[in-house]
Write a protein that binds this DNA or RNA. Structure first.
Lengths: 197, 197
DNA sequence: GGTGGAAAGTTGCCAGTGTAAAGATTATGG
DNA sequence: CCATAATCTTTACACTGGCAACTTTCCACC
C-alpha cells in the first residue's frame, strides 16, 4: 500500500517510533516534526491521525492501559495471586517503559478523552479486583490495596528512572533481576514468602 | 537593590516562580520566556544565573534533594523510626510537588552536574541510613530497604499524579488525609500497627 | 467504468521557544 | 576616580506545534 504518497500504516508507525523516542529521551523532548522526518513523511501528516501532539500521547497511554488490563486479567484467570499481580505490573513497566511513563504523567494527556478514560478504568478495575483477593486477610483492606499498588508502582518508577541504580540500593541484590527484587520486596508486604521458580 | 535595570534577586525569583509553574502545568510546559515575562525581565536574563533551561531544572532538583536530606536527618535525630522516615518522605512530596517531580525525572536533568550529584547522594544516604535501623528485623535487609522506599515513593507518585483519586482507591479511606493513608499502608510492610495521633 | 466525495499527505505560514553573540547598565574593589 | 566584573537587554537564528489551503489517492455508488 506504500505508493510513495500514502504511507500505508502511518498511525501504527507513529506510535511505534514515538515509544522508541520517549523511551530514550523522555516525553518532553519528543517532537512531532523530527518523528515525521524519521518516518519520511511531512511534518503535518501525523495530525490527520492524532489531531495534535497531545493526541499522540493520549493514544500511547490508551494503548498502554489496554495492554496492562489484558495482562492483569490473564494473570488473574491463570490463578495468579496478588503478589503475582504486582510482579506482572512491574514486568509491564519494564516491557513498555515509554507507555508506563506517559500513562502516569497526566499533565501530558487530555483527561477528557473517552477512550483513554475507558482504558484506564478497565486497568484500574482489574488492579483492584486482584487486590480484593488478598485484602481481607490483611486486616486493613484499603491500606492493603494502596500498599500493594504503591510498592510495585514505586519499584517500577524508581527502576525506570535509574534511581535504584544511582542510589546504590540495587547493588545490594547482587545480580538479581528486577522481577526477583520485586518478589522479595513486595513479598514482605503480606509476609508471604516469595515463590521462586 | 531593584533599580529598574537589575532585578535584585533574580535567581531566587526564578526558582520560586518555576516551581509554581511546574506544580500547576508540569515540567514539560515550563517555558523560560514566559517565566521571564512573569518576572518582568528580558527572556535571556535567567541564562546568566542558570546557563540554560536544563540548568534551572538542575537547580530545582538540587534544592529539592537538599531539603529532603535535611528533613530526613532531622527526623532521624529526633528519634523517628523507619515508618516515620517514610511519612516524612511523603510529606516532602506533598509540600514540594514540583521539586519531587523534577528530582525523579532524570531526562530533565544533566546527570554530570556535581552539585546535583552531591545533593542526591546526601539524600539517598540519609534514606538508606534510616532503613538500616529496621532492616535487620525484616529478615531480608535489601528487600526491606527497597520495599520501604518503593512504597512511600509509590504513594507519593500516585497521589501527586492524581491517580489515587482517578482510580477511586482514595475514596476507600473516607476523609483520611494522605499522611494517614501512608501510615496505614506503609505500616503493613513491617507488620507494625500504625500509630494514630 | 466513470465520478464525486472522503481520506491521506503536502506546502506554506504564524506564533512561541531555547540558545547565542554583542551591547548597555550598574555595582565594586583597587 | 577608574577598570573590571556582574547583571540585564537587544537582536538574531533555528526549531517546534498548530493551522489553512492545496494535491494526491482511495472508495463507494450510479
Amino acid at each position: 500500500m506504500t505508493d510513495g504518497y500514502h504511507h500505508g500504516n502511518l498511525r501504527a508507525a507513529v506510535l511505534k517510533r514515538a515509544a522508541e523516542v520517549i523511551e530514550e529521551e523522555g516525553p518532553h523532548s519528543f517532537s512531532l516534526r523530527s518523528l515525521a522526518a524519521d518516518l519520511g513523511v511531512s511534518h503535518t501528516a501525523p495530525r490527520h491521525h492524532f489531531g495534535s501532539r497531545e493526541g499522540v500521547l493520549n493514544a500511547i497511554a490508551t494503548e498502554g492501559f489496554l495492554i496492562l488490563a489484558e495482562r492483569l486479567r490473564d494473570n488473574r484467570e491463570a490463578g495468579g495471586d496478588f503478589l503475582e499481580t504486582g510482579v506482572e505490573y512491574v514486568r509491564f513497566a519494564v516491557d513498555h517503559p515509554a507507555h508506563f511513563q506517559v500513562m502516569f504523567t497526566p499533565t501530558l494527556l487530555n483527561a477528557r478523552d473517552p477512550e483513554l478514560a475507558a482504558a484506564r478504568t478497565a486497568a484500574f478495575d482489574e488492579l483492584v479486583t486482584g487486590a480484593d483477593t488478598v485484602a481481607e486477610a490483611a486486616g486493613d483492606e484499603p491500606a492493603a490495596v494502596v500498599g500493594g499498588w504503591s510498592i510495585v508502582h514505586g519499584i517500577a518508577t524508581l527502576a525506570l528512572t535509574g534511581n535504584l541504580d544511582s542510589s546504590g540500593v540495587r547493588s545490594l541484590f547482587g545480580d538479581a533481576d528486577l522481577i526477583d527484587i520485586t518478589r522479595r520486596s513486595a513479598g514482605l508486604l503480606f509476609a508471604s514468602p516469595s515463590p521462586r521458580e
